[in-house]
Amino acid sequence: MVTIDPTKDAPDLADIRPSTRTVKETTGYRIFKYANYFTLLMISAITLYPFINLVAKAFSAEGYIAAGQVNLIPRGFNTTTFAAVMSDSMFWINYRNTVVYTVVATAIAMVLTTTFAYALAKKHLKGRSIFVGIAVFTMFFSGGLIPNYLLINSIGFKNTIWAIVIPNAISVFNLLIMKSFFENFPTELEEAAAIDGLSTYGIFGRIVLPLSKAVLATMILFYAVSFWNSWFQAFLYMDRSELYPVTIYLRNLLAAATSMEDMGSDNVQIASNVQSVTMVLTVLPIVCVYPFIQRFFVSGVMLGSVKG
């Protein structure tokens, strides 16, 4: 399958720059080199530690957590909390909501962003710079929390999926990435298709989109991760627990624990165990796909930076 993949031409950021290969190894530089490896190892360890700690707590017995004895390895290994959280039907309802919201929101966002970017990428289009300006201005000035809140409520989106999947449908950052990709799309292909009698719709649907799969995949991932992780829209507009995404489920656990801690209750430790399990289950899908999608994200950001 042929695709135009600008990410393939992007430099691999893990590549070693030639300038470092030819550095003269003075004693000073050698000391720096080892200190540098050590520093980077420490940074990696510190970055990973909270995740390992979460997993350890998720599988530990409450007594050990309460005594402050759990750090890297689970102590009093058990899976009872896992079983407890996973048997909570509300957790699964919220989890399913997250999946549904993410899929619908990503689909809407992709339709709007792709068509918008394609039209804006046509240099001959009259009024193009005005439309680009209209979009870019929203990056630097926005309506603010309250007017948005009042608007969403007044159009009846409260307690509906639309409050989550519509208001953030166009990310201007993603729009600019797509636009610069379409601008570099080989015009000969489109001209040939036009001569063969395809209309703009035909060219877009049958020539441009199939050839842009790599960029479309990157955009889908950008949107999907941001919708998967979002919580604030749901926090503002959802009143009923069966509509919550899993991030709100988790937020409510955290909030309950914090207020208990304020009152000095003993339930804090139990909460800590449940929290860890819920967090592990929430991040699991992202951590699992992360090694495979990371490349797309990196190249997507670099596509965007070409413009800036």
Binding site: F141, G143, G144, I146, P167, A169
Partner: peptide, 9 residues
């Protein structure tokens, strides 16, 4: 969703 809230200010 962007300009109406701006006007809503």
């Amino acid at each position: 969703f962007r300009y109406l809230p701006m006007a809503g200010n």
